[in-house]
Design a protein around this nucleic acid. Structure first.
Lengths: 107, 107
DNA sequence: CAGTATCCTAGCAGATACTG
DNA sequence: CAGTATCTGCTAGGATACTG
């Protein structure tokens, strides 16, 4: 039950998945769009997402090499329930902030 | 955007939230039901969930003290999109396993 | 361009002992 | 019963340097 959430609940997976929603993108383009991510973490997280079957990697043997990442069919499908969660979060942002504030004030 | 997923994407939050779906529960009862969790992590995760406003804590001043944890209205609401995600995970379990296996075999 | 390879550190989380 | 407190190993992840 925890598998998927454990997998995409890390620091970067979600951001990468959503960065790929609009279409395939190249490594360095992704690096720019996913603010704050290091090269190391981008590579590693992409490999993980690829391994899970959410992302596929295409190498174009040009010089210099061009590598594109895109959501797989399953990846696109996964994004749907994730959207629900994200919009839930959006809608409840204020409520959560209030809860936090109140909690913190009482100790 | 990452806030909620970061919050409940840790090792135990999801399991605790789902353990509370059927109704309020006491500390040690939860500890039994959430298999493998340490006392330390149960306390800590419950505090976090309380801080976010997903769980509330009620102390009954008996001797010995009795403490009950329950989902708040917002907590119950959060569980809905989480269910979507969990059932998605369920449905795609095999596909993910296949993807992993294939990935691992090719390197 | 798209990565490895190393080094390094903060903090997550387990185990254990103690307490109102 | 429902927690704290403390010690500690481990690993996620940042910074940096290098490469086909």
């Amino acid at each position: 039950m925890r598998n998927v959430v454990a997998q995409i609940g890390d620091k970067w997976s979600l951001l990468i998945l959503f960065a790929l929603v609009d279409g395939a993108d190249r490594f360095n383009a992704l690096k720019s769009r996913v603010e704050g991510i290091s090269q190391r973490m981008l590579t590693q997280t992409l490999r993980d997402l690829e391994r899970e079957g959410y992302v596929n990697r295409t190498v174009y043997p040009e010089v210099p090499v061009k590598v594109e990442y895109a959501l797989t069919t399953m990846g696109k499908d996964l994004v749907k329930p994730l959207y629900k969660l994200v919009s839930w979060a959006d809608e409840h942002q204020d409520e959560i902030n209030r809860a936090r504030k109140e909690y913190d004030e009482n100790r």
